[in-house]
């Protein structure tokens, strides 16, 4: 007999056949490896001034990517700034997914007034201009990695909530939900153990893409000077050097490229997951 393959295992097999997605995953592994190395193993003070300000890449040996407007080594800043950037991306995405799934699941499963209430709340957060609202939150609570992640999570969950709700509305009508009820399963078991596992594929995709969006969001806030002043992040590097853009492109372009490649890799992986979970889209 054939070996039992779980639906997740099958999707993984499908994912591995998708070349852009695998390339994205490889790129992501390289970037994450670089960031982890910089955060945990690489010992150098990123704030140390190593040479004159705005030294071009390759101009001087030992400073491969040049220096920023204060003369700090961009390569070292890049290594040290990746960790906070990714931490914000991941924790904001996690918060988005947790709030979004909780709201969407309850609204979609119970319907009625619960649905009305939660959806009005979702709409309230959805119509607020996300960046402005995040800026208000960050300035209110003093910028730190935690408040920034929190602010990004708070402005991004409505999309996940709507997606979750739609999935729950569809799945709760299926016969295996009635069947689960007929063996005596209660509401919480049906929500978390019967419906949610079946609703996960689109949510995994959306969570992956949210990581990319959150990293961009953090960069945006830092660019506007609302990043955590005590922590180096890629977005902050861009923000601090933007006044010198006309004299030196590299202190802005290099962290910009780092963000670009990270988000690009995450999107490729997210798209690959989407194709892997949606066999119907595969042929297109």
């Amino acid at each position: 007999m054939t070996k039992a393959v779980s639906p997740l295992g099958e999707a993984w097999g499908q994912f591995l056949r998708n070349k852009p997605a695998v390339a994205g995953l490889a790129l992501l592994i390289v970037i994450v490896g670089f960031v982890l190395y910089g955060h945990f193993l690489f010992n150098a003070d990123p704030y140390r001034i190593v040479w004159g300000p705005l030294t071009a890449p390759g101009e001087r040996e030992g400073i491969p990517l040049g220096t920023d407007f204060l003369g700090r080594d961009i390569f070292v800043l890049l290594l040290k700034g990746g960790g906070p950037t990714m931490a914000v991306g991941l924790s904001a995405a996690l918060l988005t997914v947790v709030i979004g799934i909780a709201m969407g699941a309850l609204a979609g499963y119970f319907g009625g007034w619960v649905d009305d209430l939660l959806m009005r709340l979702t709409e309230f957060f959805q119509v607020l201009p996300a960046l402005l609202f995040a800026m208000v939150l960050v300035t209110l609570f003093a910028p730190s990695l935690v408040t920034i992640s929190f602010a990004i999570g708070i402005v991004s969950w409505p999309g996940t909530a709507r997606l979750t709700r739609a999935e729950f509305l569809r799945i709760r009508e299926l016969e295996y939900v009635t069947a689960a009820r007929s063996i005596g399963a209660g509401n919480s078991r049906i929500i978390w153990k019967v419906i949610l596992p079946n609703a996960l594929p689109p949510l995994i995709v959306s969570a992956a893409l949210t990581v990319g969006v959150a990293i961009l969001f953090e960069a945006g806030l830092s660019f506007l000077g609302l990043g955590d002043p005590n922590t180096i992040s890629w977005g902050q590097m861009i923000g601090q050097n933007r006044n010198f853009l006309l004299e030196a492109w590299w202190p802005v372009a290099i962290p910009g490229l780092a963000i670009f490649f990270t988000v690009f890799a995450v999107s490729l992986v997210g798209d690959g997951l989407n194709d892997a979970f949606n066999p119907k889209l595969r042929s297109r």
Binding site: E175, T178, A179, S182, I183, G184, P197, N198
Partner: peptide
């Protein structure tokens, strides 16, 4: 919930859709 499954059980019309696809 106690009665369902323990004292009264049900089988459905569509065996294709009455089992949860993501669990063995």
């Amino acid at each position: 919930r106690q009665l369902r499954g323990r004292d009264i059980a049900m089988i459905f019309q569509e065996p294709m859709t009455s089992l949860n696809p993501v669990f063995t």
